[in-house]
């Protein structure tokens, strides 16, 4: 269980990097196929079927988050390694990449569209699909944040309250970078 919530503390950096890069690739390829992009680290939005738009926006979101957390890490502990921050950010977003794919499952995608079309008169199947997705969204979002926090804490090795506060500020910032562009 500890390994699930803090892989950065237990797994070799090359394994994490491989898994993390694979998840980015999945995010870009499926983003292109299904028409979504990560316009901030944990923010998924609709996109045109355009490699450039999906790829650039998604990679930019990851890049900003990695740079922001690396700068913060260096400020807190000058021995912070780039590879550990890189792995932390990539692995933390794996649950959200999975979530973006789950949302594209036909019956869930149809349910979401049905809500947009007519939110007052919903079919029981649609309601079940919505309940299912709400049961999935929260745990995966929490898991993503837990992975980010644990990974950063392990990498930087600082646990004072002001370190945690600065981490939260940067975490909020990287989740709203869509407003920068």
């Amino acid at each position: 269980m500890k390994k699930l919530f803090n892989p950065v503390a237990h797994f070799d950096e090359r394994i994490l990097l491989g898994a993390g890069l694979a998840s980015v690739l999945v995010a870009v390829v499926f983003g292109y196929l299904f028409g979504f992009k990560f316009d901030a680290l944990s923010h998924i939005t609709y996109a045109n079927k355009d490699w450039f738009e999906v790829g650039l926006t998604t990679l930019r979101s990851y890049g900003i988050a990695i740079a922001a957390f690396f700068l913060l890490g260096i400020l807190m502990n000058r021995r912070t390694r780039f590879i550990d921050i890189l792995n932390t950010v990539l692995i933390a977003n794996v649950p959200l990449v999975a979530l973006s794919l789950i949302q594209k499952l036909p019956f869930i995608s149809n349910a979401l569209e049905a809500v947009l079309r007519n939110p007052k008169d919903l079919d029981p199947v649609v309601v079940s699909a919505l309940m299912l997705i709400s049961l999935i969204v929260l745990p995966l979002t929490v898991l993503s944040f837990v992975l980010l926090y644990n990974g950063f804490k392990t990498t930087v090795h600082r646990k004072e309250w002001y370190h945690i506060t600065l981490f939260v500020i940067v975490a909020v910032f990287v989740n709203f970078t869509q407003f920068l562009f």
Binding site: V8, A9, D12, E13, R79, R81, T154, T155, H157
Partner: peptide, 16 residues
């Protein structure tokens, strides 16, 4: 870290 089957940052933290 390899011998203890944990990651480098965890071992470095123990060392610190």
């Amino acid at each position: 870290a390899r011998q203890a089957d944990i990651s480098y940052p965890t071992m470095r933290n123990k060392m610190d």
